[in-house]
Design a protein around this nucleic acid. Structure first.
Lengths: 348, 348
DNA sequence: TTGTAAGCGTTATCAT
DNA sequence: ATGATAACGCTTACAA
């Protein structure tokens, strides 16, 4: 039994149109020269037979899948979605399809190699970089460290964190806590580095990070610990906005004032749930990250050599009220331009 | 130039292992019987050569892509993400890959047929159902109406909307507005139907829907119109939580009280941004929607006949404070079980 | 247990 | 302008 497709092949079409399969292919690929008459007949036959070409056969013949893979750990929150959208959009512009693989809990070994067998190149999210067995296919790692020889694209982290932290310290905050699991993602570790450096630059010593996941509920736990006196701080630098917002909400509910009692800042500039005080945060060019990844895969597949240095995208510090500033214009305050290798700076 | 892959084929492996390609295939597919010795040698050769099989060649040979397609309009907010995760997860469990196509603004005709040529079956999001040209491949439409002969899966809408609306009317609200673009998605239209019916059941006449998009900013516009007196209402039934939350935030900012001045209810039960008052909303089994879609595609590809009736998943009304109720336990109040065709009710 | 060989449905190179 | 025909890399009877 033919389980998929309708059994209509290029042969059926050729026969019906009264031409050879070569002509059918020419018409469909719009390659070579075909008489108007032949073209019409082919198109007609295609229509009548509901012909759907076999992507597999084509890929085999042209030795290219025209598809890029994307490996993400999950899809909660706006971060991954935006990355995915950026990637898919650019891939689409390049005429490439996208195969998605979500990390989740499952063992990725087999799914990953299956993916590798179906695509021309793969974009891997930072935390999952370990899954790249000598992948044979071109790979770029996004938002995280890559093994030697593998290209990496990331948003600037250290400097942004430095500035964000320093901003809090400049507000006179003395007991800052970094909230985020530095072991979970390379990005988070870099942010903690910036956090530490900012302290050191002022002759202070940064506290150990408070390890939590990225999710909202994890923020609540931190808030509870703060309320219980288990944790003490007058400023919180959170690994992302969701955690920051959750903490703010819980703290405010319990009668504490943000930023008076404790300043809270985050990362990502999530546009949802605009709150008061507005959340001071670092805006990342997530969409561009995805788009750039797709671009690079395309170039790598095209034969370009992998880049030796990481490609770092600039971020913007967005000052609102949660850091202790008077809430003013909702605009980015400063940006962190980075070395651009060959790609022009992303534009909004 | 060989642009993709490393040129290592099953032949290279066979040669290196000193066996035939049939044996290599047997080892890799774990089919047929192979001597331990041959197996070891093949595996060794695979390792040494960094062999990555060609998915295309395999698909061509087995006449199956082992991949399902998913067509979504976009990825903003948690709704689509959850749907996607549900779909991808189940597909993964079934050993199938997922190709994603995002609607966006671009013309979908070509991307869609390309997609069709690369997958065994496609899941199409409701609003995009029009893009299914006699697709030849099995298709299921999720969250929306499907052309005759095409299977559809959706969450219950009319009854939920009816109950939600009636709940507001029972609170003594008299000027209810439905906020959402009924022309954009069939789901929204169904909700408006329930909205209308609830009015009619009480001998009232429902107002025309206020057409807005799904996004947050669209909610703000509505709030502005309300504040400006351009719109008058003491209760708002919003097409999703993002719009509802945005409206609530803007209204509250401007000094209005929710729910005293105006009740606001939504749809989706977005867990982010838990606010006060808590948002009364309808919880949809979005993850299951995606998972069920993958399941059905799998069965269709396996030769099962398409279902004639729509497969409707139950929703839960979640009563919190934004409807005017005293804020009590954060639990679903009632559910809308529907006819189950063959799939057991989704469980949390 | 292993190998040979015939597909699978395209593209692309030659002739014609 | 069109048609044979040889790849493309794999799976799978069928033989051995």
């Amino acid at each position: 039994m033919r389980v998929s497709g309708n059994g209509v092949t290029i042969y059926s079409v050729a026969e019906r149109a009264g031409v050879s399969i070569a002509t059918v292919s020419r018409v469909l690929q719009d390659s070579g020269v075909v008489s108007e008459r032949a073209r019409r007949q082919v198109l007609e036959a295609v229509e009548e037979l509901d012909y759907v070409p076999s992507g597999a056969a084509r890929s085999l013949a042209v030795r290219q899948h025209d598809t890029y893979g994307l490996l993400l750990p999950e899809l909660s929150g706006p971060y991954y979605s935006e990355l995915l959208v950026g990637f898919e959009t650019r891939a689409g512009e390049l005429g490439r399809g996208v195969m998605l693989l979500l990390g989740g809990a499952r063992d990725l070994a087999k799914p990953f190699s299956t993916l590798a067998s179906r695509v021309d190149a793969i974009c891997v999210f930072g935390g999952l970089a370990a899954h790249i067995g000598r992948s044979t296919r071109p790979v770029v790692v996004v938002a995280g460290g890559a093994p030697p020889g593998v290209e990496a694209i990331t948003a600037e982290n250290v400097d942004s964190a430095h500035e964000l932290t320093d901003h809090l310290l400049a507000h006179g905050r003395t007991r800052l806590l970094f909230v985020g699991d530095t072991t979970a993602a390379p990005d988070v570790l870099e942010r903690y580095e910036g956090f530490t450096q900012a302290h050191e630059d002022r002759g202070l010593r940064a506290a150990e990070p408070v390890h939590v996941e990225f999710r909202e509920r994890d923020g609540i736990v931190v808030a509870e610990r703060l309320l219980a006196g288990d944790l003490a701080a007058d400023g919180l630098v959170c690994c992302n906005d969701e955690v920051a917002l959750a903490i703010m909400a819980r703290l405010t509910d319990a009668g504490m004032d943000v930023p008076d009692d404790v300043a809270v800042v985050g990362w990502d500039d999530v546009m949802t749930a605009r709150v008061r005080p507005g959340l001071t945060t670092v805006r990342q060019p997530v969409h561009q990250l995805g788009a750039l990844a797709a671009d690079r895969l395309h170039e790598l597949v095209g034969g370009a050599p992998p880049r030796a240095t990481r490609h770092v995208l600039p971020t913007e510090l967005v000052i609102r009220g949660s850091c202790g500033c008077e809430e003013h214009a909702d605009r980015p305050r400063r940006s962190h331009p980075q070395t651009y290798l060959s790609t022009p700076p992303p534009r909004k």
